[in-house]
């Protein structure tokens, strides 16, 4: 394993694997070095979901305070950066809204720094921004967060590796089997093609589903810009174009 791979070496690996996976990330994806020893090598076993797996944990107002959906009001002062609204609808593959279900987000601050003790990036911590939020979807599956646009940040996958700006999302669906952890990206990021985590979804159209859309209708005058990102859970029966 070469910790010192260059971006052009990683990019060549990404290119060689383009289209070799499906609409979900390819778990065995060597350009993302941390995956080398952490991806299963055996095919997943099909199992018909049993009662417990067709059900889903219940979260309610006891679990989540509505104020947790605003990441800009968790401290005494205003965080630095571009204030944004991120909103969208969570549905299952049949188009049914995921109602009153938990959505969790976490992210870096505007300068690309996480409030995490292992984040060594020498960018400033913002004392007014933690970068963690939660909400419950409404009766029609809508979630909505107010936050700060996160910055891109360096990581040590290879020399000069940078992650495109993203917000981590954790979602529950209408069934346990629809559980999803993913990342939402911003339109037009120049780092997309260089990033092995984004490119691990080798189907380009599928990975573009992780990119939010700027929506001027969501932009609040004199207050924040707005992004729309809808999420579809479950229904992964992929028409695999896998050449393996």
């Amino acid at each position: 394993m070469s910790d010192a791979a260059t971006q052009s070496e990683i990019s060549a690996e990404i290119d060689a694997l383009a289209g070799r996976g499906g609409a979900q990330p390819k778990l065995d994806y060597p350009p993302y070095r941390s995956s080398l020893l952490r991806h299963p090598t055996k095919d997943p076993q099909h199992a018909d979901p049993e009662t417990i797996e067709r059900a889903v944990p219940v979260f309610g107002h006891r679990d989540v305070d509505p104020l947790e959906a605003d990441l800009t009001i968790q401290h005494r002062g205003e965080p630095i950066g571009e204030r944004i609204v991120v909103t969208g609808r969570v549905t299952d593959a049949a188009g049914k809204p995921v109602r009153e279900q938990l959505v969790e987000v976490w992210q870096a601050n505007a300068s690309g720094r996480y409030i995490h003790k292992r984040d060594q990036h020498p960018a400033p911590i913002d004392p007014n921004f933690t970068g963690v939020g939660r909400c419950l979807t409404d009766q029609d599956g809508w979630y909505r967060f107010t936050t700060i646009k996160p910055g891109p940040y360096p990581w040590r996958n290879h020399t000069n590796a940078w992650r495109p700006a993203h917000i981590h999302f954790s979602l529950f669906g209408n069934q346990f089997t629809e559980r999803l952890i993913t990342q939402m990206y911003f339109p037009g990021d120049p780092l997309f093609g260089l990033d092995p985590i984004f490119c691990s979804i080798t189907d380009q159209r599928a990975r573009e589903r992780l990119i939010a859309r700027y929506d001027h209708e969501l932009t609040v005058p004199e207050w924040s810009t707005g992004y729309r990102w809808d999420i579809v859970l479950g229904g992964r029966e992929q028409t695999l174009t896998e050449a393996e």
């Binding site: 609409a23 979900q24 990330p25 993302y32 995956s35 593959a93 969790e104 987000v105 976490w106 870096a108 996480y114 409030i115 995490h116 003790k117 292992r118 984040d119 933690t130 970068g131 963690v132 981590h168 954790s170 999803l180 952890i181 993913t182 990342q183 985590i197 984004f198 691990s200 979804i201 599928a206 990975r207 589903r209 992780l210 999420i231 579809v232 859970l233 479950g234 229904g235 992964r236």
Partner: peptide
């Protein structure tokens, strides 16, 4: 049109547990 997954990454420790 299922939304793809992505890794939970290294920095979930202050957010999810």
């Amino acid at each position: 049109m299922t939304t793809p997954g992505q890794t939970v990454g290294p920095f979930f420790g202050y957010a999810l547990p």
